[in-house]
Simulated scan of single mutants.
Amino acid sequence: MSERIPTPQSERDPATTSDATESQDQDGEHHKPRDSKGWDGKLRLDKMTLGDVPRDPRVEVESEPEESDDEGPPPEQLAADEDLLDDVPEDEDEIELVHCKVADMDSLRLERFKQMKRLCLRQNRIEAISIPNTAASTLTEVDLYDNLIAHIKGLEAFTELTSLDLSFNKIKHIKRLNHLTKLKDLYFVQNKISAIENLEGLTNLRQIELGANRVREIEGLETLTGLEELWLGKNKITEIKGLDTLSNLKILSIQSNRLRSITGLEKLSNLEELHISHNLLTDLSGLENNTNLRVIDISANPIEHLTGLKGLTHLTEFWASNCKFNDYAEIEKELRDKEELETVYFEGNPLQRSQPVLYRNKIRLALPQVVQIDATFVKQV
């Protein structure tokens, strides 16, 4: 089973499609997958197996080795006389060159596109951001996912930007962005960022993605009061804190960190989804004030008892694979009163391993309201 990550409003399903395929959202709009695996930048773990057991909370987690900054030989350059945009009309408002070995943005002569709204140069070899200032009044989206950018520079004039994707680059520090006050979506997946900083003024930010970096502490978010989605998976965070002012937060994803307890969520009364799998949690206390939670994923934590969910009457999905639950009666006691509950995952727990043949029927008897147990839909009586 793959770890469940929610599907936001667009192009958010990690389907195993190629770049040539397109996904279609509920509004009928087509979106190209944002990389070769259909992954849009949100951190998603590899598929879990039943052998993916929780970590022992008594064992210290070793840091991953730091990656070398030695990138090998210089990238291959475009031929000076090659114009990759020669056949693109100059009134085109979306410019896209994916996996074209572009190293120098100046060679693209972007100044000719007077109506450019979206610029997508994914999976190239760009080291420096260079966009003509003549596009500043129209450009709203810049996507430079999977390049070789180490420093955020060259965006001083682009105050109309609403979306910026710098995922899969070599960025160590968040700088020179706080003048982009219209930004709504900001992506920094898989960089080398160790501190959340210099985001003051981005009060219109709706979501920020910092998955797969080197962040150890949640900080620098106090002024982002409009934030609805915060993605912090696969970092080195040991404590949830610094979120009290984010009263509009709906989704918090903090899986694959070093958390031993759920803290700091007391003021997040609008929180709807909590993704906290692959940590070191031993209980679920700390959710008492989050009565609007609909989705909880606690998979692959060494949790033995299913308590701490009282008052969460709006739960619709509860993901708890590969934990240490062994008591059907406790599952019934804690979850049967959740009338809106539709989906539960308990595979990989001792109760499933010990009685794999009877397991699904026992869950059905304990929770007759659910329509899906693990990946299987169940008939309603």
Rank of each mutant, 00 (worst) to 15 (best):
N191E: 05
R214Y: 08
L148N: 11
C120Q: 10
L227I: 07
L166D: 02
R125E: 12
I171W: 02
I152M: 00
I149E: 03
R206V: 11
E197G: 08
K192L: 12
L221C: 07
T134V: 13
I254S: 06
K170W: 12
V215I: 15
V142C: 06
A135Y: 01
E156T: 05
T162Q: 01
N204I: 04
I152Q: 00
N147M: 12
N124Q: 05
L249R: 07
G220M: 08
N198E: 08
N147L: 11
A195E: 09
E228F: 09
E197S: 10
D244K: 14
A157V: 01
L224Q: 07
L210W: 11
S137C: 03
G226M: 06
I254P: 05
T203W: 11
T134D: 11
N169K: 13
N248M: 13
L252T: 05
E200Q: 13
L232T: 10
S194T: 09
V142D: 04
E160W: 07
L177I: 08
I254F: 10
K184R: 13
H151Q: 13
K182Y: 03
E141I: 10
L139M: 10
G242D: 06
L202K: 06
V215L: 15
G242S: 12
I193D: 02
L252N: 04
N235P: 12
L166K: 01
V189E: 01
R214S: 11
T225W: 04
E209M: 12
K175G: 02
K192S: 13
L210D: 04
K234I: 07
I126F: 11
D146M: 12
R125C: 14
I254L: 05
L183S: 01
T162M: 02
L252V: 09
L249I: 13
L166E: 00
T245K: 15
E200M: 08
I129G: 01
N191T: 09
L180G: 00
K170A: 08
A136E: 01
L161F: 01
E239P: 06
F188L: 04
L139Y: 00
L164H: 02
L221P: 08
G201P: 06
Y187A: 05
L249T: 08
T140K: 10
T162A: 03
T245E: 08
K184Y: 02
P132G: 07
N169I: 13
L119T: 01
S137K: 14
N213K: 10
Y145M: 10
Q207K: 10
D165W: 03
T238D: 10
T181N: 06
E239D: 08
P132Q: 03
V189W: 05
Q190H: 06
A195I: 15
L155P: 01
E229G: 11
Y187T: 03
V142F: 04
D185L: 00
E141S: 13
L249C: 12
S194E: 14
E127W: 03
D165V: 09
I208Y: 06
L210N: 06
I126M: 08
L246N: 08
L210V: 05
R122D: 03
G233N: 07
G201N: 13
G226A: 12
I126Y: 03
